[in-house]
Amino acid sequence: MGIMGKLASGFAGNLSEVSPESLMQEFGMYLMDGETITTGFKLIRDVVIVTNRRIIDFDKQGATGAKMRVDSINLNCIFHVSAETAGFGVDDSEINIYYITSPYFKANGGVSTAEKKLEFPKKYNIQPLYKYLQEIAYNNHEALNR
Rank of each mutant, 00 (worst) to 15 (best):
L31E: 09
I100L: 03
A143K: 01
E26F: 08
D92S: 13
K6P: 06
V18G: 02
Q134K: 11
V111N: 03
S9M: 07
E142N: 00
A12Y: 08
N139S: 04
H141V: 01
F120D: 07
V50A: 04
A143P: 00
A143V: 03
Q127I: 15
K106C: 06
G87I: 12
P103L: 13
G10S: 14
Y104V: 14
V48K: 06
E21A: 10
V18H: 06
M29W: 13
E35T: 01
L43T: 08
K123Y: 02
T39A: 07
L75S: 07
V111H: 00
M32E: 09
E21S: 08
G10T: 08
E35I: 01
G2H: 00
L133I: 09
F27W: 14
I55V: 03
Q61C: 06
S82Y: 03
T38I: 11
N145M: 05
P121D: 12
G110H: 13
S102I: 09
R53G: 04
F58K: 04
L133H: 03
S102G: 15
N96G: 02
N14S: 11
Q61N: 06
D57H: 09
G10Y: 12
T85A: 13
Y104C: 08
K106D: 11
K67Q: 12
V90Q: 01
A8W: 09
E94I: 01
L23H: 07
I3R: 04
R69H: 12
Y99T: 02
T64R: 10
R53Y: 10
P128F: 14
K6E: 09
T36P: 08
E84I: 04
G110S: 11
K116I: 07
E119W: 00
N139K: 02
N76R: 02
C77T: 11
S93R: 15
V111F: 04
D92Q: 14
A86H: 15
C77D: 07
I55E: 08
A143D: 02
V48S: 06
D91M: 10
I78L: 00
L15A: 02
F11Y: 11
L7D: 00
I73F: 04
Y99Q: 06
G110M: 13
N145R: 13
L75E: 07
R45E: 07
E35D: 08
Q25K: 15
Q25I: 14
G34E: 14
Y98V: 06
V18Q: 15
T36L: 14
G109N: 11
D91K: 13
G109K: 13
L129N: 02
A114S: 15
A83Y: 00
Y104G: 07
P103Y: 08
Y124E: 07
T39Y: 03
E21H: 07
T85W: 03
T51G: 08
I3G: 00
I97N: 02
D59M: 08
A107S: 13
G87A: 12
S112V: 02
K123E: 10
T64K: 03
Y132V: 00
A114L: 09
E135W: 00
